[in-house]
Design a protein around this nucleic acid. Sequence first.
DNA 1: CGACGAATTGAAGCTGGTCAAGGAACGTGG
DNA 2: CCACGTTCCTTGACCAGCTTCAATTCGTCG
Lengths: 255, 255
Amino acid sequence: MTAAQTNPAKLTEYRQRRRACSNCALHCLCFPPSLYDGRRHLEELNLRQRWIKQGDHLFLSGQRLRSLFVVRVGSVKCYDLSPAGDTMVMGFRFPGELVGLDALDAGVHAGYVIGLEDTHYCEIPLSTLHRLQNSRLELRQLVTQLLCRVLADVRSLLQVIRHLDARARLAWFLLNLASRLTGQETIKCEFRLSMDRNDIANYLGLTIGTVSRTLTDYQKAGILSARGKSIQIFDVRALRKLSGSDPAVISLAKH
Amino acid sequence: MTAAQTNPAKLTEYRQRRRACSNCALHCLCFPPSLYDGRRHLEELNLRQRWIKQGDHLFLSGQRLRSLFVVRVGSVKCYDLSPAGDTMVMGFRFPGELVGLDALDAGVHAGYVIGLEDTHYCEIPLSTLHRLQNSRLELRQLVTQLLCRVLADVRSLLQVIRHLDARARLAWFLLNLASRLTGQETIKCEFRLSMDRNDIANYLGLTIGTVSRTLTDYQKAGILSARGKSIQIFDVRALRKLSGSDPAVISLAKH
DNA sequence: CGACGAATTGAAGCTGGTCAAGGAACGTGG
DNA sequence: CCACGTTCCTTGACCAGCTTCAATTCGTCG
């Protein structure tokens, strides 16, 4: 029995919060399975909830790593600048997703993160993270696991870009987005893109023209509707086939 | 004064070994800065030094992760199989480089590793790693750092494939190889490729024809000589320019 | 409503893929 | 050591897909 359970009001608050965070990458940090006192634990975490406006930076390349960030509401874009000044989009982060992990070795951010819209986030100070890693055994593996997942993500993007053509890349991108936006197994068939065509093109290693043309093709085929930034997917299975999730299609894309 | 220093013969052996391993990714695991007894420490690590023949697998996808591996002599290829059965080359590992890290979260290897030639390696049991992480504070960060480095590597490959054309990709690949083969800052201008053209093409997201043609172009330009698997680089600066290390060139490759 | 940036669309050109043929290198067995 | 077969590599011709550049349309916000 936890201390939170001794006070019905606080217990309710605690439970609500726990449910709201259920899709968070760091859920097990804030809400460990067995706790002496859930509420007090949350307070000791020293979490800060803040927000940035569209176009504000969460951090810049070269800045010291002080905290990890988790998007709560909104979305951000992670990008690098090439020596020549071209932006190179590394990815996008949506509610529940973590930002800043890759700076853990150098202690310095290797890229920029900017809000694609007004975005709320949690900030977890590094000191808190380290303290918890020392005291709680199950958290010692957490960072490793999260890093492995980021690595797997980058690798799948790499595979997509190496082996799939423009149509398949875009299909993959849309499906990826549609499933991440729900934070669950399901797929969101109607949503607004928070990034522009340029960002999508750059991310997928294409040009804006190709992205636009391909979207038009999809619409002509009745697979989806794309009016500006609002997307409506009509035929998920067709997208899946195109994206190469379908084994029969992947074999067509072999090198 | 360490115990090893009390015995001149053993001290010499220890020092030789330490030097031989100086380029190893896990050097600080085997040879921590301050040690009571270097030799005994090495014995307690329970390292195994083994080897595989060309074409043998170090491990298969789906196998349980039992150890990490470090290449000592030779080279290996890391690859995946697509659902359709096509191989997708993830990378190559040379002496001093680590293999198996990315399986740390699932505990199961997500890819295959095969010897490109007869290859000697060190095997570090997971249990040893965990024991050391618990007892030695500085090693607790080691895995994180190594993972971050792997992540950075994959990302740079991603950038190369997204933003550079065939000539630049190959130039980048050769320079990357040439510097990793020395294990230092310097570049090895004469070496043998241990992988075939197919592997290179797949790795760089090209076809074997393009790789071959591009190499021929380089030779016609007097930049290098490539007779089969033996490479001789004549003009490192030209390669650097082509690869996009040169800011003036990167700007040409913008999307 | 008007103006600006973002997105679409078209035409032309180029890079790299595909397919097929020929040649070099390598290992094996006589 | 040579003949042979196999695998790997090179080269050529042709073509598809994507990029480039420019013109037009859409959409959003003051």
